[in-house]
């Protein structure tokens, strides 16, 4: 994190220094020293509070990382003087607080990736839709265009058996509300081709996603699927039910899959699917 110092605007209120004396250094007259400030890890929350304390708006955070942004609901706890003391002490610890925010962001992004997998594998429209922002864009192999069209395309493939697994995810925060996320996937796909022949494919690659946070929620704004491995397999001739034998139940599309029994009562009736999938994957 970097703080831009507009030295000419400083009028010596010294509120930044009062908040974070190790970050903001003053001259003998009490005005900020010239030059932008590289803020050390662990000082970021205090530094951004110092920035916001400046009555002259002489300080600016250059690209605040996600973990320095204090979320509204958490901040209420911090300022709620009537609240339980233990919570207040916990929440005012700057290190813990920044970490908690970052962890929440990371977990929300992972959750969204998993929702996508459920959406695709279970043909669960709500889950799939909840992974993308409405105007999101998807470069998805043969398909390239609005994510909305991809959703329609993916849901219109009856008789498919898919298993999408997300493995390594690297989450790089671009700002407090944007992240570049690279997620390895392994996809086993079996279903009728355009010529009605059953094909089975092992695909590996990476989802390269631009994630955006809007009103406390993370979703995909842009997706590019990069392919690293493809293996055409020989689909088994026998029916699934026979092959699995006593291993029951077998996975099924929404809403017949057993997971939806488990989630019953937690699945939203609206089409957003915002809450249900989040709960489901938690």
């Amino acid at each position: 994190m970097r703080v831009v110092v507009h030295k000419a605007r400083c009028q010596g209120h010294a509120r930044c220094w009062a908040r974070a004396p190790r970050v903001f250094k003053l001259d003998d007259a009490g005005y900020i020293l010239p030059g932008d400030i590289d803020v050390a890890d662990g000082e970021q929350l205090l530094a951004s509070q110092g920035v916001r304390a400046c009555p002259e708006q002489a300080l600016e955070v250059d690209e605040p990382p996600a973990n320095s942004i204090v979320e509204r609901d958490t901040r209420k706890v911090q300022t709620g003087i009537e609240k339980d003391k233990t919570i207040i002490q916990f929440a005012t610890d700057p290190v813990d607080h920044a970490k908690i925010t970052e962890l929440r962001d990371r977990e929300a992004i992972r959750n969204c990736l998993y929702r996508y997998c459920r959406g695709i594998d279970r043909a669960d429209e709500a889950a799939l839709r909840s992974a993308y922002w409405p105007e999101a864009y998807d470069r998805h192999g043969p398909y390239c265009g609005p994510a909305e069209d991809f959703i329609q395309f993916a849901l219109g493939l009856p008789g498919h058996r898919n298993i999408h697994q997300i493995t390594n995810s690297l989450i790089d925060f671009i700002s407090s509300a944007e992240a570049a996320v690279e997620s390895y996937f392994t996809a086993l796909q079996r279903g009728p081709d355009t010529d009605q022949e059953i094909r089975q494919t092992l695909l590996c690659g990476r989802y390269c996603d631009l994630f955006q946070k809007r009103q406390d929620e993370w979703r995909i704004a842009e997706r590019t699927v990069v392919y690293d491995w493809i293996e055409e397999q020989i689909p088994p001739a026998i029916l699934e039910a026979d092959r699995f034998g006593r291993r029951q139940p077998i996975g099924a599309p929404h809403p017949d899959d057993p997971i939806y029994q488990l989630l019953k009562g937690h699945i939203p009736t609206d089409q957003d699917g915002v809450e249900g999938p989040q709960l489901g994957a938690a």
Partner: peptide
């Protein structure tokens, strides 16, 4: 009394702070 980000104007703004 626990208000945050309290960049109030009690001492004025500008060079005559």
């Amino acid at each position: 009394l626990a208000r945050e980000d309290n960049r109030h104007a009690a001492f004025g703004y500008g060079p005559h702070r």
